[in-house]
Amino acid sequence: MVDLSVRLGRLSLSNPVLVASGTFGYAREMEGLVDFTRLGGIIPKTVTRLPRIGNPPPRTIETASGMLNAIGLDNDGIDYFIQHHLPYLRSLPTVLIANIAGKNEDEFEEMAALLAPQSGIAALELNLSCPNVSGGVDFATSPDVTARVIRRVRAACPFPIIAKLTPNVTDIVPIAQAAADAGADAVSLVNTFVGMAIDWRRRRAILGNKTGGLSGPAIKPLALRLVWRVAQHVKIPIIGVGGIATGEDVMEFLVAGASAVQLGTVNFYDPTASMRVMEALPEYVAQLGATRLSEIIGSLQP
């Protein structure tokens, strides 16, 4: 028997396979396709303080082994989330990690305070890094702002805090370090890489938002390298995200230094991938001669 459980600061998971925000809807859509008991946890779509209509379509376009998206945080706001999505989400037999994005520090704090009295939330993931919304949501390009948001959210709610960071920066290490210093329990690395697709015949950007975030297998090596770099410098646990689609992908991220992973785009093209990936892990862990998955985290040979 291989022990798959992992600890992310104050958060414990029975296995390291999470599903990424924005790639699993509000979980209800996946009922019947996915056995939620087999997931390490669910991170529903980002919720904002007020409803957001989102970006004009087209919102996604496939690229080589990947896709660009510019959904624009289309959601009905936190009041609706608490009333209509949370009752269902908290009833599921798995860990719930709510994901929030504020337009400013005040909104982050306000949302954390609104969620604080709610039962059934195991942790908060802060979307500091959506590349597709104007109005300053790209908090995680600055270590100082990242730290301030995390401190205020920590003070406003009892939940473990996960900071989801953007790769669209010169150096991600100081930002991850700032998150750690401010009291984040873990960092999610990484959100999507900003990219573009063009219809040259019409001389137009394909996405309604013109640019979008690249995800899928195409970005896996990029995400893996950032996880590895941060793991060498920053002490808090890392959740690896970026193009993970198989059990072997998960093993690469664990060896690089991630303590857990999120499956994202693969949920779109293979809705049952999360279960298959989880089931593949014990055998792979055993192949490395380990009995606990935690033994292999960050075990990359020098």
């Binding site: 924005g22 790639t23 699993f24 809807g25 859509e29 996946m30 396709l33 779509k45 209509i53 989102g54 379509p57 087209p58 919102r59 996604t60 376009i61 496939e62 896709m67 998206n69 959904i71 289309d74 949920n267 779109f268 093209y269 809705p271």
Partner: peptide, 30 residues
């Protein structure tokens, strides 16, 4: 409409649907 998932989780395939106070995007797939 361009769809990524078909099951309602990606919010790509939206179209404008009338609401009591104007319109909102709704997913064509669900």
């Amino acid at each position: 409409t361009p769809m990524a998932c078909g099951v309602g989780i990606c919010f790509s395939c939206v179209t404008r649907v009338k609401t009591s106070d104007g319109w909102d995007y709704r997913r064509v797939c669900v």
